[in-house]
Design a protein around this nucleic acid. Sequence first.
DNA 1: GTAATTCCTATTAAATCTATAGGATAAATT
DNA 2: AATTTATCCTATAGATTTAATAGGAATTAC
Lengths: 136, 136
Amino acid sequence: MLSKKTKYGLKALTFLASQPDRDPIQIAEVARHENISQKFLESILLTLRRNGFLGSKKGKGGGYYLIKAPKDIQMTSVMRVLEGPIAMVPCVSLNFYEKCDDCPEEGECSVNKLMLKVRDANLEVYRNTTLEDLIS
Amino acid sequence: MLSKKTKYGLKALTFLASQPDRDPIQIAEVARHENISQKFLESILLTLRRNGFLGSKKGKGGGYYLIKAPKDIQMTSVMRVLEGPIAMVPCVSLNFYEKCDDCPEEGECSVNKLMLKVRDANLEVYRNTTLEDLIS
DNA sequence: GTAATTCCTATTAAATCTATAGGATAAATT
DNA sequence: AATTTATCCTATAGATTTAATAGGAATTAC
């Protein structure tokens, strides 16, 4: 299952990307428009800012705004930041690799074999989809 | 993340599929061979039997065995039984469809748009992989 | 009849996810 | 300078899901 964090984060990014300009938009406005708990969204936007997707401005007239062109934001990076590793098991992860402690021979593990294919299929999608592609 | 239930279930299926014949194999032996908690595995094999993948025999000399040819067991069905829906959100699920309550227009939802692609990519993999493909 | 093994349900323990609380910090306005 | 507005930040509570265990019932082989 996709976490709500990722779901809300994606919706927020898309909403910001679809703005006519890059003026700051308040959390409250995003939350209202996308039906998201404001406090929860706040923490999500914070992570997105800390990871280089958003800029922010405090005080009156403040809010969040995109700091990259939507076409330059790949879903690989969005998913990794919001949802975590793209691989379903650490033993096939590119960025978060870990050996299984139970599995003696990775090359002969059926789970490894299947999840490698799944990872590649997902990477293919995420690499070839940018935020721009998600705007209606 | 792939659940341990699915991971263990896949390993057990592969182990049973790689047996020279279809004589019953004890839970204990599968558990030992794959480093799995026996009690946990027991409940997994039970689900696999109830869903038509395995047969079982009680008492001395009993155990579990495959009741279909490995090449006839698609990963789509294994994943659905062990891991649940293949889609990451209900609004793009073929077998477990549900409308989002927050999203007014599915066709304009970025999450829907992305997850549709992901679902298709995963289905492609799961449909084209059988248990036979996972045996070393 | 006894031992071996699966069957079945309930429950506990652990981990993760979702959401909230509440004050700190900074900017704009007056 | 004071006030208002909005993000910043950490901690924590509540809810849900996952993982594992417990313990006895049912069935089969010998």
